[in-house]
Simulated scan of single mutants.
Amino acid sequence: MRILHFSDTQLGFNDLDITDETGINQREADFYDAFTQVIDAILETKPDYVIHTGDLFHRPHPSNRAISFCLTQLKRLSVAQIPTIIIAGNHSTPRTRSASPILAALRTLDHIYPVFEERYEKVVFDDITFHCIPHINDEAANFAAIEECEASVDEDKRNIMMLHCSVGAQFMMEEYGERVYPREKEDLFEKMDYVALGHWHGFGSVGKHPNVYYAGSSERTSSADARNDKGYALITLGESLEVTFHPITLRPSHRLRIDAGESADIFDTLRSRGASLDVEGALLSVTIENLSATQSIDIANRDIEGCFPTALNVQVQRKFRRSEASAATESVNAASLQEYFGAFLEEQSSTPEEFTRLNSKVSTLFARYDEVNNDA
């Protein structure tokens, strides 16, 4: 039995003030292209089942274009009669029950099984049961859903658990309503043939659990994600579990770091580094470190961008010498103070876990600041 697992497609995401030849935001179009590539792969691979573990859309109220695109692509799976189970993530779940969940529209398609009603549901077939826990805003209700799932394991069939949350770590991404799976309930994973996760955007297994995997996102939502391949996971359930990752093709994305103290000419260094990379239509993140204030004055943002004339976008951050740290709030894209500070933390943190923990606290502080100012 083969199952194709993908997640966090974030349809409707847009970024940068750049449009394509049809007038659509270029990054929004990139996300549509990534989704289409996965649907193409499904139709070519012809798995027995397809699962999507949340954040199908970027927002709970996506644009008409995002909805129309999604329905058109999923209709291809419906026509091919490939059973497809989709759970809601925190991005596509309304914050109040009075709002209509967008995933309800998917019920109009045959062989597409959306799960979005903030409770445990199972989707049952002759040979397999999918135990679905979509995003649930209420923490107590989320825990109750896990307990209901625990009592519903079918010992006579294959069992697949689908979740959209953080597993194996007590830190989060500081997004509305997100969940950390309770450690005391991780024994439930052992009763499953496979546990499919959404929320974190990188593919990989989770800790000590050999059958628990994130599929990762289908596109990059930030420059911090530049090094990660995107695609889908193909799961084979035989005598043993086999999980393989299959990347799709995205526009190039690179991160460059230049030490101003070691470069005689920063622009020559940038051009030299760029010559070894595929920068045609690329997303570039350039960090210039160890700058003095006087050096910074002589380095125009436009000149930095000019080193990569064929790139789609060049995002630049300046990191000043410690003695001049008070000047280190400048960004080529006029990034917010929170974004700048987050980038600083990422550079200074010794591990990804330390960065996530510290950034979580910073995000909380900025949220409180915004709340106070909005109420003022």
Rank of each mutant, 00 (worst) to 15 (best):
N90G: 00
I136P: 07
N137R: 14
F143I: 15
C132V: 00
H164N: 08
Q81G: 01
H91R: 10
M162W: 05
M161V: 06
E155C: 07
N159E: 06
D110N: 14
A80P: 07
S166K: 12
T108D: 12
I86C: 05
S100Y: 11
P94F: 04
H135W: 04
S100D: 10
D126K: 10
E150F: 09
A151C: 06
H135A: 07
R119Q: 15
M162Q: 01
I112Q: 10
D156P: 00
F143P: 00
A141D: 15
A140E: 14
S78P: 03
I85Q: 07
T96K: 11
A99S: 13
I112C: 04
V167N: 03
C165D: 06
P114D: 03
A80E: 10
M161Y: 00
A99Q: 13
G89V: 00
F125P: 03
L103F: 04
A104E: 14
D156N: 14
C132A: 14
S166W: 07
R97W: 04
V153D: 02
E147K: 15
R158C: 08
A144P: 07
I86R: 03
E139V: 11
L109Q: 06
P134C: 03
V153M: 02
S78R: 01
I112N: 05
S152E: 07
I102Y: 03
S166E: 14
A99H: 11
C149W: 07
E117C: 08
E117G: 08
